[in-house]
Amino acid sequence: MDDESSIEEILNTIGDEHARTVLASISREPGSAKELAERLELSQPTIYRRLELLEENELIKDRTLVADDGNHYKEFTCNFNSTVISLEDDEYDIRIFREENLPDRFTKLWDELGVK
């Protein structure tokens, strides 16, 4: 990661006990905010705050689903496989390893090449 602020924000996010609990839970099994509140025995406002924090730092992703009654809701899942935090020369570095699919990798490569 290049941005100092981003490193601090990610460290603060994973330093939050409830954020880690939510992240661990959705890394095992995706869930909605309501499901997570029930599963983790935390209030829905607590869950929503942590989900927002995790989303801001791109540690989770969501998808919108439609319930049987026609209502929409979001299901959250972890969007990375592992994280390495290293300290070298008094500076932290965070590497987040994500599983990308082939079309995403191709698009990223294409963008990096500056092809329009």
Results as ranks from 00 to 15, higher is better:
residue 112 E to R: 08
residue 62 D to N: 14
residue 107 T to G: 13
residue 98 R to L: 13
residue 104 D to K: 12
residue 68 D to M: 11
residue 54 L to A: 04
residue 60 I to G: 03
residue 56 E to C: 02
residue 78 C to H: 08
residue 38 E to T: 08
residue 49 R to H: 03
residue 63 R to L: 03
residue 104 D to T: 06
residue 95 R to Q: 14
residue 43 S to L: 10
residue 93 D to T: 07
residue 82 S to C: 05
residue 53 L to W: 13
residue 101 N to T: 05
residue 49 R to P: 00
residue 106 F to P: 10
residue 44 Q to S: 10
residue 77 T to C: 05
residue 45 P to G: 11
residue 67 A to T: 06
residue 90 D to W: 05
residue 61 K to W: 07
residue 76 F to H: 09
residue 50 R to K: 13
residue 77 T to D: 08
residue 63 R to H: 09
residue 112 E to K: 15
residue 84 V to C: 08
residue 48 Y to E: 04
residue 44 Q to N: 09
residue 57 N to A: 02
residue 76 F to R: 04
residue 109 L to N: 06
residue 42 L to S: 12
residue 67 A to P: 09
residue 76 F to T: 02
residue 42 L to N: 06
residue 52 E to N: 07
residue 64 T to E: 09
residue 71 N to L: 12
residue 95 R to T: 11
residue 48 Y to R: 15
residue 87 L to Q: 11
residue 46 T to Y: 02
residue 98 R to E: 08
residue 92 Y to I: 04
residue 81 N to H: 13
residue 103 P to K: 10
residue 49 R to Q: 02
residue 111 D to Y: 09
residue 114 G to D: 15
residue 87 L to Y: 06
residue 63 R to P: 00
residue 56 E to W: 02
residue 56 E to S: 03
residue 105 R to L: 13
residue 70 G to A: 12
residue 113 L to S: 04
residue 96 I to H: 04
residue 107 T to K: 13
residue 84 V to M: 12
residue 68 D to W: 10
residue 82 S to F: 13
residue 82 S to A: 14
residue 56 E to G: 00
residue 103 P to N: 05
residue 77 T to F: 12
residue 68 D to H: 12
residue 109 L to P: 02
residue 40 L to R: 03
residue 76 F to L: 01
residue 91 E to F: 10
residue 81 N to L: 10
residue 40 L to H: 03
residue 81 N to T: 03
residue 106 F to M: 10
residue 67 A to H: 15
residue 101 N to E: 07
residue 39 R to D: 04
residue 38 E to V: 09
residue 101 N to F: 08
residue 94 I to L: 03
residue 114 G to M: 15
